[in-house]
Amino acid sequence: MSEGRRERRVEVRRRSAVGRGMTGIRIARLSVQLALLGLFLAMAWAASYPPSGFYPDNLFLRAEPLNALTTALRGFSLAVALPALILLFLTVVSGRFFCAWICPLGTCFDLVPSLGRGKKGGLREIRPRPLQGGEGKDGGGRLRLKYLLLVLVVLLQAAGIGLLWLYDPVVIVNRAALFALSGYLPVIFLALLLLAAVYRPRFWCQELCPAGALFSAASALGKKLPEKASPLALRKEEERCIHCGRCAAACPFEITEVADTRRSGRLALADCALCGECVKACPKEGALALTSFGATLLGSGRGKAARASTEGVEAVG
């Protein structure tokens, strides 16, 4: 416990997601994000008459489980719900990967320059906070507003008051894209981009997004699933961890549990979007890894990636 109370003060040079510090995992994730955003926009553009016979033009909207859930409240149909069920299943067995890899709104947040990400090359003091020790609760043990919003949105929808159009991330971007095509101003989308730019890039995702809350809740269902059974997982080796806190400082979703937890093995954190930023920031070989069915996709502390991520660290006290 005395060790657990130790104060850590880490200053980390933070960079914008697109800029210096492009390394393997960032290039990989950004490529996937941009490809899927491009597909999303292409499908929105192609949604004009005639409807495609090969695939539903609204696949992204259908696959968003919050929409599928409220649609199922009015009448369940397996054919309509199938994409959302597949996505939910993948979320249960791996985690909230949708937010960091697929979500078009999340991709837009990652693309805007944000004050919350720190000025390019500038120093920003990150979170001097006591090491919690023990298990390390998800979300620091606090109740996030997004869960309340999720319950509220679903209850109101069932009661005949629709709020989903205001809160669903896929809908917001879809509307923004089609508004832009027809000359309307996508005000909600621009307001959220502004929030990400002046405050924290993923504030919406972590604190407000009801779809994100549904993904978080779904991923909590698969918490006990072993690493070998998970298509995408974050693994920690507690014996190798030096508790420097760089992983917590690097996390775009501002999760500290990766640093705080004393567990080894698969870290099934409800809010973790499996973006791999913590693995990239970790200086210790083998302490953190992204894995797929037990095989390491990306390990920490190896090669150029680790050196690039540690050169920005100025002081560890």
Binding site: P50, T71, Q157, L164, W165, V171, L178, S182
Partner: peptide, 23 residues
């Protein structure tokens, strides 16, 4: 039911053959 459940995603406006829909 329609005004409660509509997502305002604009897919129908985009998909209309004649362009008879607007937000």
């Amino acid at each position: 039911e329609f005004s409660a459940a509509c997502l305002r995603c604009q897919e129908c406006v985009r998909g209309c053959l004649t362009g008879c829909l607007e937000p």
